[in-house]
Design a protein around this nucleic acid. Structure first.
Lengths: 129, 129
DNA sequence: TTGCAAAAAGTAAGTACTGACATAAATGTT
DNA sequence: AACATTTATGTCAGTACTTACTTTTTGCAA
């Protein structure tokens, strides 16, 4: 039985995220992580090798991309297919669930890209010479 | 003239975010920050004082909430209204632009809340006793 | 007179995140 | 025989993020 304070105008439970130790926060953290956002978007509608993915996402290091992919895989957002050869050949793609989050993340990212200039203008207006 | 690699199936420019030094990344960082997400959601459809906001968002410290609000204000997402009295009285609310991002962030957050259990199940399936 | 109220700002200390670099492995090339 | 290839892993230093704690302001209640 949820507390009243956990119920919101839409009638939906929202206490979750606002609560201190909520599991959702961990997932949120994973999905909104610096490289996770870019990785999810980069993986939309494509299967791609590790090295190609790294080239696609400007500025990621091996270390961070590996780590990001592992987290996303553990959460069930990313599928990892290993071809047992040397040198290694590994392909990454989104799971159906990963595709769902990616779409939401994408909408947000698109909005930001579309409004970056507007936001920059606002900032400068506040800090004139 | 954008490179072909910067154009995506939707016909939309996406090179932005994938490029190393893109201003959009900074905004993305602000919006997807640990406390920024929760702050934007908490401010949806309401004007609220600092202390009330802190109580609403479980686990934030004064310091972090202040910092988050300042960043969001500088980007033009949050409006800050100061009543010049002692003790201080300050009210926060979303700007029209802030309301737009908040809605996108909200959709993402809702999806995560709705799927947290499913994700947790997946994780456990991978790491049995 | 002491203390509390609310919203920061400032400081110092601690933790987490990042990135650069070195290493491994089996086969084909020089 | 030495070397490049690809996907990690491990280590280590450097940076950024977080938190706890202290200080300020002014009027009013104890």
């Amino acid at each position: 039985m949820p507390k009243l304070s956990e119920v919101v105008r839409s009638g939906k439970l929202v206490g979750n995220l606002m609560a201190k130790e909520c599991p959702s926060r961990t997932i949120l953290k994973h999905v909104t992580g610096r490289w996770a956002v870019l990785t999810l978007i980069a993986l939309q509608d494509r299967t791609i090798r590790f090295s190609a993915l790294r080239r696609l996402i400007g500025g990621v290091s091996d270390r961070m991309l590996t780590q990001t992919l592992q987290t996303l895989e553990a959460d069930g957002f990313v599928h990892r297919k290993v071809y047992d050869v040397v040198p290694p050949h590994v392909e990454y793609s989104l799971t159906p669930m990963g595709d769902e989050v990616a779409q939401h993340v994408r909408v947000l990212a698109d909005w930001i890209e579309d409004n970056t200039q507007k936001i920059a203008d606002h900032q400068e207006a506040k800090a004139p010479a």
